[in-house]
């Protein structure tokens, strides 16, 4: 059975698209046929992060309006086997997505794919609600700060009341993905700790992605950061994917890096 997973947050700019790209790539690398859909109609950028912006011909809205077939619109990832991207339209607005239209596309994708990852737009309004409506599971992307946690809390409320599963009385499985985590700033109490966020949101922790320059570098190169095996952010996403697939993996990168003996000797930064 295909699983539909929405990547959502309420607050904007917290790392939904970065996470959607990394997680879908990770699932495909693990051998699962995966499609990632950009629900951010009008502001598409998943294709940029995935490095396939030049290959976009048709988009999600074209498929919904039957101006193109799903086959025509799906972009096969160049680097990773088993991975496809369904880009968003740049010229339409969020009203172009209709419940029936989205459902028809998802039903068709379900026949072919194991995982359908939905990259939600920011906010808690119609666009975000459309992205989460059909979800079986939700990855709630949160930054360790009060306003982001508050918005994640609201989105969890919406998942419980406005998703199709909620309407049928079946809960959506919830995962917390804490991103842009900076242990040094947590220690100096400028940011909330993992424990603080877990206590407020009270949902299982899927992963903690450290704040990392590798993320920006990766997005400039159009290459999901999970492919950067040397970067801690890449490794943290790889761990999160394993957990999503049911493995138990300890959390890493939660503490500020202690200066090693040699670094101290050499006066390293």
């Amino acid at each position: 059975m295909a699983k539909i997973i929405v990547v959502t947050s309420g607050k904007g700019g917290v790392g939904k698209t970065t996470s959607s790209a990394a997680i879908s790539t990770g699932l495909a690398l693990a051998g699962h046929k995966t499609v990632v859909i950009d629900f951010d109609v009008g502001l598409r950028n998943l294709d940029l992060i995935m490095g396939c912006e030049r290959r976009v011909v048709y988009d999600f809205v074209n498929v919904i309006n039957k101006e193109a077939s799903l086959k025509q619109a799906l972009i096969k990832d160049k680097r990773t086997e088993n991975l496809f991207i369904l880009p968003a339209s740049q010229t339409r607005d969020k009203d172009a997505l209709t419940v029936d239209g989205v459902q028809a596309v998802l039903d068709e994708l379900k026949k072919d794919f194991e995982f359908i990852i939905c990259d939600s737009p920011a906010g808690i309004e119609q666009g975000a609600q459309m992205a989460l409506y059909f979800a079986d599971e939700a990855i709630v992307v949160t930054n360790p700060e009060v306003s982001s946690v508050r918005d994640s809390d609201r989105i969890l409320g919406i998942l419980q009341s406005k998703s199709m599963r909620a309407e049928k009385g079946e809960p959506v499985k919830e995962h917390l993905l804490l991103t842009r985590y900076n242990p040094t700033r947590v220690e100096s109490a400028e940011m909330l700790s993992v424990a603080d966020v877990e206590e407020i949101l009270a949902i299982p922790l899927l992963g903690v992605i450290p704040e990392s320059e590798a993320v920006l570098k990766a997005s400039n190169q159009g290459q999901p950061v999970i492919l950067d095996e040397d970067a801690n952010a890449g490794q943290a996403y790889a761990d999160a994917v394993k957990r999503l697939l049911g493995e138990t993996v300890p959390h890493r990168f939660l503490e500020a890096e202690k200066k090693g003996f040699f670094k101290r000797l050499l006066g390293g930064k």
Binding site: R150, G157, I158, Q160, S161
Partner: peptide
Amino acid sequence: RSGQQVYAEGGDLVVTASVS
């Protein structure tokens, strides 16, 4: 969660989890 409202009409309300 934040944004949700629960009303127990005519009686008590018991929540076995946290209230945001």
